[in-house]
């Protein structure tokens, strides 16, 4: 047990924008894995649709020399997360392995954290979620259903991290690179998303994070995000 504890992982993600096609498979994968509340047209029209990962799209240039810049944005699991200190009840906090965690049954719904997240990745349960039967059969038992009135956001699929750790420990081996795959990374058809341990210099994510194309979103704020974007190249 002890030797496996020698190194605390620092979970991180690298998203290669040169691969990303904007297909949004990752978005639905996250819904399927994490029991995200269903929206209704009325609520969606009010800006209350929940997508823990979204694909931002910005037009650049004018027709015909126009480009659409796609960027999947999820919680950046900031090392210095601005959402954390403002929570009055410690419902959002930092875990030892660097996740920005959200304790649903501790959250009282002040929504302060969401105001202070520069990436706008926090979503609020304005109502109790509903899954008309039998849709609820598809809910993932590894992930808590969030009640109305609490905040939620991407967890880096912490349930998958835990499962992988448990499986590794049952097999008496340390976690290997690639053992943990969040649902979004798993589904991405262009294989744009890589997840892993930044504390392991040999991991694929460390390699990609160190790439010359690697940047981080709103890096100047000093939030130390742990999602690395490998910029899209253009060759014409």
């Amino acid at each position: 047990m002890e030797e496996r504890r020698t190194r605390t992982p620092r979970w991180a993600m690298a998203i290669d924008l040169d691969r990303c096609t904007g297909c949004e498979a990752c978005v639905v994968a996250c819904h399927a894995e994490n029991n995200l509340p269903l929206s209704t047209p009325e609520e969606a029209a009010k800006g209350r649709a929940v997508h823990w990962i979204r694909v931002d799209r910005y037009w650049e240039g004018e027709f015909p020399d126009i480009r659409l810049k796609y960027m999947p944005v999820l919680c950046q699991h900031c090392e210095h997360a601005p959402c954390e200190p403002v929570c009055p009840v410690y419902a959002t906090y930092h875990t030892a392995d660097g996740l920005n965690a959200q304790v649903y049954n501790r959250c009282i719904g002040t929504r302060y954290c969401a105001n202070n997240c520069p990436y706008s990745v926090r979503f609020f349960n304005f109502f109790e979620p509903v899954w008309p039967a039998p849709l609820s059969l598809g809910l993932n038992p590894d992930v808590a259903i969030r009640p109305g009135g609490v905040m939620e956001k991407c967890t880096f699929c912490v349930q998958r991290i835990k499962r992988a750790r448990r499986e590794a420990s049952l097999e008496g081996r340390p976690l290997r690179d690639g053992d943990v795959q969040p649902a979004c990374a798993q589904s991405c058809p262009a294989e744009a998303i890589v997840f892993g341990d930044l504390a392991d210099p040999d991991s694929e994510v460390s390699r990609r994070a160190g790439s010359a194309r690697s940047t981080r979103l709103l890096e100047d704020l000093g939030t130390e995000p742990k999602v690395f974007y490998l910029s899209r190249l253009s060759s014409r």
Binding site: G47, F126, F127, G149
Partner: peptide, 11 residues
């Protein structure tokens, strides 16, 4: 009914 009956929303 839930705080959603108010007009607040994201963002």
């Amino acid at each position: 009914h839930g705080i959603g009956v108010a007009g607040i929303r994201r963002p």
